[in-house]
Design a protein around this nucleic acid. Structure first.
Length: 438
RNA sequence: GGCCCCAUCGUCUAACGGCUAGGACAUCACGUUUUCAAUGUGAGAACCAGGGUUCGAUUCCCUGUGGGGUCACCA
């Protein structure tokens, strides 16, 4: 291929990085990489009142965190390119392709004031473009009227700035959300007016909320930042996002970003919008946590792990959580047996099939005796000491009271693991306590 | 409402005229477990409707219906 493919990701820094936008960035990235091309990052900040520096930083960080890399060293901002736009604007006016119009401002702080805005002289034609995903799309531009392209010669509006930037940056492929379809004819009109070549368009299906409307803030967690804070792994989020609206045509579901690049085929992108399903994302994340080595698990979840955590709890945590953010709740719940025993009702020590507490007391006595005779308190050792007893008397009859006496909770890991973690002394102490309670 | 886009299990999707319509998440059942989780096995679950085209349509065409997007001196 002699013409290198150049895609772009041009967010406006007016908020956090929305997962829909993150997916758009991802597709631009893997499409470019698949074809040996580049992806350019730039900021569209022509709206001075809504654009914020802090959002620029967040967007950059979010993308980096996801592992989506852009190829330009310097990130251009439209707010710093007004000189460039001004030249095009002047030329368009000189050539009669746009004109200055004195009009009263209808909204905002300066309502009523007169302003010299610049309108594009609409040729009122039908525009047809070929979409990579949807095929030919024809739209009559007449309805667009003479649309406004700049507030004044110094302040271009979105459509003008985008077209000029894409042209000057040599963008060959514009991959964006489906909501961009209606912008396309307007932009093609401007391209023709300034003599820019027409890039190839691909409009991605939208990510929808459960109610089938465009996913937005009022639907819960929608920013990359929120998922990061939940303790979601970036590779899981990327994997899930890629499969929302795209599939490889095989049954493979787990993809690293490099594998995505290898397998990517833009013609396999779906046309209809896809509902964002948190449950499935969660499943992906759990898969990725499972694949982590223990060392990796520790380093990657470190922001979520308390300082004084017993390392023996780590394997239990790793196999239980779907997001790192669940760790604290786990430690406060099922794994809280490492804390001092809570007060509990002695009835709880009774296995559901036991008529009363008479036998339970003797079982506890037996367990106590058995365990006091062994010195190795590894879970295997404790288990081999107790198991014959459980087989003989009944697993529930023995193991339930033992586990409850050790954990003081309805839910917990098995009594052998707890014994190992607690150690012999504390294990015997808790069993003794239960025994005396009866 | 105008214009545009879309339509397979609850959800994400496979199928590129001929199959018992496949997989994954979720759900349910059973097995394993003392509990919870995890895990194993299995089950239920879909071609929006009506016309064409064709020997034959989920698949191609048309219409209807439904859903979505977009209609700023926002991007």
């Amino acid at each position: 291929m002699n013409n290198k493919i150049i895609t772009r990701f041009p967010p406006s820094p007016t908020g956090f990085l929305h997962i829909g936008r993150a997916r758009t960035a991802l597709f631009n990235y893997i499409f470019a990489k698949k074809n040996g091309g580049k992806m350019i990052f730039r900021f569209e900040d022509t709206d001075k009142t809504r654009s914020k520096k802090e959002f620029e930083i967040i967007m950059l960080d979010s993308l980096k965190w996801l592992g989506i890399n852009w190829d330009n060293e310097i990130i251009e901002k439209q707010s710093e390119r007004t000189g460039v736009y001004k030249n095009y604007l002047r030329k368009l006016v000189e050539e009669g392709k746009a004109y200055i119009s004195k009009e009263k401002i209808e909204e905002g702080e300066k309502v009523g004031q007169e302003n010299e805005i610049i309108r594009f002289k609409n040729p009122n034609i039908k525009i047809t473009f070929t979409d990579l995903i949807r095929g030919d799309i024809t739209i009559d531009t007449t309805d667009l009227k003479d649309f406004i392209i700049a507030r004044n010669i110094e302040e271009p509006l979105y459509h003008l700035a985008v077209v000029i930037d894409d042209f000057e940056m040599g963008i060959t492929h514009i991959i964006r959300g489906e909501d961009g379809i209606s912008n396309t004819p307007r932009q093609i009109l401007i391209q023709r007016a300034i003599g820019a070549p027409q890039p190839i368009y691909g409009h991605l299906p939208l990510i929808l909320a459960a109610d089938r409307t465009k996913l937005s803030g009022r639907h819960g967690a929608v920013s990359v930042t929120e998922y990061k804070e939940k303790g979601c792994l970036p590779e899981a989020l990327v994997n899930y996002l890629a499969l929302l609206g795209w599939n490889p045509g095989t049954d493979q579901e787990i993809f690293s970003i490099d594998e995505l690049i290898k397998s990517f085929d833009i013609s396999k992108i779906q046309k209809g919008g896809a509902i964002f399903n948190e449950e499935k994302l969660k499943w992906f994340n759990k898969q990725y946590i499972e694949k982590l080595s223990m060392d990796d698990f520790i380093t990657r979840s470190k922001d979520f792990l308390p300082n004084n955590l017993s390392s023996k709890l780590l394997p239990l945590i790793k196999e239980k959580v779907s997001y790192f953010g669940e760790i604290q709740a786990l430690l406060d719940g099922e794994l809280s047996f490492v804390n001092p025993l809570p007060a509990y009702n002695k009835e709880s020590l009774k296995w559901k099939q036991e008529p009363d507490l008479v036998n339970t007391k003797t079982y506890l006595q037996t367990i106590l005796k058995t365990l006091s005779e062994i010195s190795d308190f590894s879970k295997e050792s404790v288990k081999s000491a107790i198991w014959p007893l459980a087989e003989q008397i009944g697993k529930g009859n023995i193991l339930w009271p033992m586990r409850f006496a050790l954990s003081g909770r309805e839910k917990s890991p098995d009594p052998f693991i707890i014994s190992e973690i607690l150690g012999k002394e504390e294990t015997l102490r808790r069993l003794k306590f239960a025994h005396e309670l009866l």
